[in-house]
């Protein structure tokens, strides 16, 4: 029995959102101009993520050299202090993190035009400063932003979101409490299309419910894309204004 009323009969979730509402979504790019070629800082609810893109650059290891396309390397650093309770282990080399890294590489390999940068390495370094559920989706969004900042060619945005299923009601953009209490799905969507670049289902979800979950998930991801797009356009306008002022 959950200690909480996860979804009240009046249709409100623990944190006061309705079933189809996103959390606060704030992002900025070019936050670490000195330290990287592309960077972003994303706050999605209480997830706080710094992403640095370095490259395309000369690979350090020969094994990373591919004559036909760039290699993509993604490291996720989940800090020990990112959760309520401090964790004793640094999460490096944890199976869950390695899996997440693989999933991220797979997602972006297909969406970045790697063939334009042969014999190079694109290194993406992510620091999760704070997490509050739906972390995989937030990672994808933050990578998309940082890659765009770095100017590396991509086909389209990849925007992602997690959806929980409470009884028969899908809940958009779950936080930790919701994530722990119900089955969740994370999906990544390409641009404004309904093409999924990632679908991660780690718990059981009845097949007959999956459709409604995907429907609200895609709508949510489109909304995330829109929010990212707004921020990018704002940032670009600001930069243009600054450079023309000079």
């Amino acid at each position: 029995m959950s200690r909480f009323e996860l979804y009240s009969p009046e249709g409100l979730r623990l944190d006061g959102r309705r079933w189809n509402e996103l959390r606060r979504f704030e992002c900025s790019i070019n936050t670490h101009a000195h330290a990287s070629d592309g960077s972003s800082y994303l706050e999605q609810g209480n997830n706080k993520i710094v992403t640095l893109v370095k490259g395309p650059q000369e690979p350090i290891l020969r094994s990373q050299l591919d004559a036909t396309k760039a290699s993509l390397n993604i490291t996720v650093n989940i800090t020990k202090f990112s959760k309520m309770e401090r964790s004793k282990s640094s999460h490096k080399n944890e199976r869950r993190v390695l899996e997440m890294q693989t999933a991220l590489v797979r997602t972006f390999e297909k969406n970045v035009m790697l063939h334009l940068y042969p014999r190079t390495l694109i290194d993406i370094e992510i620091h999760v400063l704070q997490q509050d559920g739906g972390i995989l989706g937030s990672l994808i969004n933050s990578i998309t932003l940082a890659l765009i900042d770095s100017g590396i060619a991509m086909y389209d945005y990849v925007s992602a979101i997690s959806i929980g299923l409470y009884d028969t009601t899908p809940l958009l953009d779950v936080n930790t409490l919701e994530e722990n209490a119900m089955s969740t799905v994370t999906l990544g969507v390409i641009g404004k299309s309904e093409k999924l670049s990632l679908l991660s289902v780690e718990d059981k979800i009845p097949l007959d419910r999956l459709e409604s979950v995907l429907a609200i998930g895609i709508a949510g991801a489109h909304r995330v894309r829109e929010l990212m797009d707004n921020e990018l356009r704002k940032h670009a306008a600001h930069r243009v204004a600054k450079s023309s002022a000079k």
Binding site: D15, W19, R24, N46, M84, T169, P170
Partner: peptide, 29 residues
Amino acid sequence: IVREHYLRNDIPCLSRSCSICPTIVVPDA
């Protein structure tokens, strides 16, 4: 413990005598 808390203006009073709230309510899932 830190949790997000969202505040909204579409919580109806649920009184039949009210003419405002029926215009602000939103449907559930």
